[in-house]
């Protein structure tokens, strides 16, 4: 098992003819991902690394029975690309661009839910189930198959931890780039139940950040539903405080929501192991494994 993507995933790459789209299609194919089709409007009939290109997502999905898509398109086109994919009925839509307008993500978040679509990202490295498949741009050589799942708001902190894990023989079941934006398509709390139910996953690592309340919501979900051990790290305890939200921000965050201390306290109360650094995550995993 594993979650979201595996050897059976039939993936579309939107924006396949662009610079990053081409490069990472090659990388994904080399890793064994079943990339069945690509989409670039106006480029239908071409091919990229042997993958046929279509003008529309619907046509690509129908011709190849695709069940997932990853968007290698700039932030400016993410809203259009994602709505097209949702409309075409793909059950898994992975967006990776940085700087997607927040209110566009807000609409995508609700649209995906109303259509029963799982939306991942944006500002995400994608999803990888090591040894099986990857949909995204993560440096895959650092990953190795195993039983620890990763959900991360930060790509770089996730790579860092995964590399150290692989070096000491701790492999991964699936790593999901939840993404660093204010409104992620899927939150920690959306994905935790999938990992609890995944037989391959034995331990779950959450890499969070200051801001928002996704970690607090994750703590609530863990307390109610997750019995597997969870390790969490919150980056940013020394980051300069956000001062741009006016009185309303202060009123909403009056209970401390959003700070590293608040998140750690909530997670700790739910029985989560708190790590202070990425290296500390690995030490805790070693102890759990023993």
């Amino acid at each position: 098992m594993s979650i979201l993507v595996d050897e059976n995933t039939r993936l579309i790459v939107q924006g396949i003819t662009g610079r990053e789209g081409q490069f990472h299609t090659e990388q994904m194919l080399a890793y064994g991902t079943n990339v069945v089709a690509g989409v670039t409007p106006g480029r239908g009939g071409q091919s990229v690394h042997g993958v046929p290109v279509y003008n529309t997502v619907r046509e690509a999905a129908e011709q190849h029975h695709a069940d997932a898509t990853v968007l290698f398109v700039p932030a400016k086109y993410t809203f259009d690309g994602a709505t097209e994919a949702i409309d075409a009925g793909l059950p898994l839509v992975i967006t990776i661009a940085e700087h997607v307008p927040v209110l566009e993500m807000l609409q995508l978040y609700h649209l995906a839910r109303s259509r029963g679509v799982r939306l991942i990202g944006p500002n995400s490295f994608g999803v990888i189930s090591p040894g099986k498949s990857k949909a995204g741009f993560m440096a895959h050589h650092i990953f190795s198959p195993g039983n620890v799942a990763f959900l991360s708001r930060s790509a770089t902190n996730c790579y860092e931890t995964v590399l150290m894990c692989s070096q000491v023989g701790i492999g991964q079941s699936t790593a999901v780039g939840v993404g660093g934006d204010m409104i992620p398509g899927s939150t920690f709390a959306d994905l935790l139940p999938l990992l609890q139910d995944d037989p391959q996953t034995e331990v779950i690592v959450l890499i969070g950040e200051i801001g928002g309340d996704e970690e607090e919501r994750a703590a609530d979900c863990i307390a109610r539903y997750v019995t597997k051990p969870v390790v969490a790290m919150i980056a940013g305890r020394n980051a300069p405080p956000e001062r741009t939200m006016g009185h309303a921000g202060a009123i909403v965050a009056a209970d401390g929501t959003g700070s590293a201390a608040n998140k750690e306290a909530a997670l700790q109360a739910a029985g989560v192991h708190i790590a202070e650094t990425t290296e500390h995550i690995v030490e805790i995993l070693k102890k759990i494994k023993r």
Binding site: A155, T156, E160, E276, T278
Partner: peptide, 22 residues
């Protein structure tokens, strides 16, 4: 300097732990 806000924050935290503010 880093190539992502997550690692940037983790780097700040690691130096701050040793009393080295950025």
């Amino acid at each position: 300097m880093s190539n992502g806000s997550g690692m940037l924050m983790a780097s700040m935290d690691a130096l701050q732990q040793r009393g080295l503010p950025a």
